[in-house]
Write a protein that binds this DNA or RNA. Sequence first.
DNA 1: CGGCATCCAAAAAGATACTG
DNA 2: CAGTATCTTTTTGGATGCCG
Lengths: 144, 144
Amino acid sequence: MKVSIEVSKVKAREAEASPKPGLDALLPDVFAADCASRGILEHIVSRWGVLVLASLLEGTMRFSALRRRIGGVSEKMLAQTLQTLERDGMVLREAKPVIPPHVEYSLTPLGRQAAHLVWSLAHWSEEHVPQVESARAAYDGRRG
Amino acid sequence: MKVSIEVSKVKAREAEASPKPGLDALLPDVFAADCASRGILEHIVSRWGVLVLASLLEGTMRFSALRRRIGGVSEKMLAQTLQTLERDGMVLREAKPVIPPHVEYSLTPLGRQAAHLVWSLAHWSEEHVPQVESARAAYDGRRG
DNA sequence: CGGCATCCAAAAAGATACTG
DNA sequence: CAGTATCTTTTTGGATGCCG
């Protein structure tokens, strides 16, 4: 049970970190190094977190299906990412007590919100590959 | 000069990547390990990339102003992140040839689009701190 | 099948010193 | 001021073996 201890600590540092005291004091601020929102954001936008959330937007999936869906992810990192997102209340894990094990992962309502946002980013990236690549070519041309 | 000497393991994994050559060859796919969109996405959602883009949404900033705005970022990582985003065509760097140096960073039109998306995520994170924290408390309660 | 524990290599990140 | 160079620490990730 490590609940209310950390809250006071966060609030204390938040006060010293936020540049705009009056209005923003009550709102969490991702720009503050010690704000909880920053940790949440980093879990969501982590290398595999983005792809797990986007994948689960397509529906409930088993561990191995996720592993196949997300190219390049290792077993270890997938398990780790799923645990983090489960703990943050984004992912629901349902394990059927059978042998061999059968475990299904899906999005919670909270996770679905986050997933829609990351999906927008993923989709935007897919659509703007040409622009970025031509920008890179120009940049690399200017330098060596 | 860092060349390709230790490619053996990396190439081995890259080779096993894209499972559907025919249809998806024309559409970039973030889920494919070797797709360019994946690299772009990872630059955008990198630890500091998100915060740089969100900061610059507030307006043009100098290096030191960005450093102050983004709590916890080191000089080195900020410089590195800015270079990556500049190369990807998201950030515009304007250096005035004076002493002491005066360098301004701003978003390109392309970067502004990405920035709006990441800002949504950052803002969402700020707003859902309570939900996530209570989910964590419940999770930690179920376990030890 | 869906993990977890361990070990090790590689990459990312931080601290510090220095420069135009 | 806005970086670069270098060194050290930390984190990440992959490989392997084990288990229910």
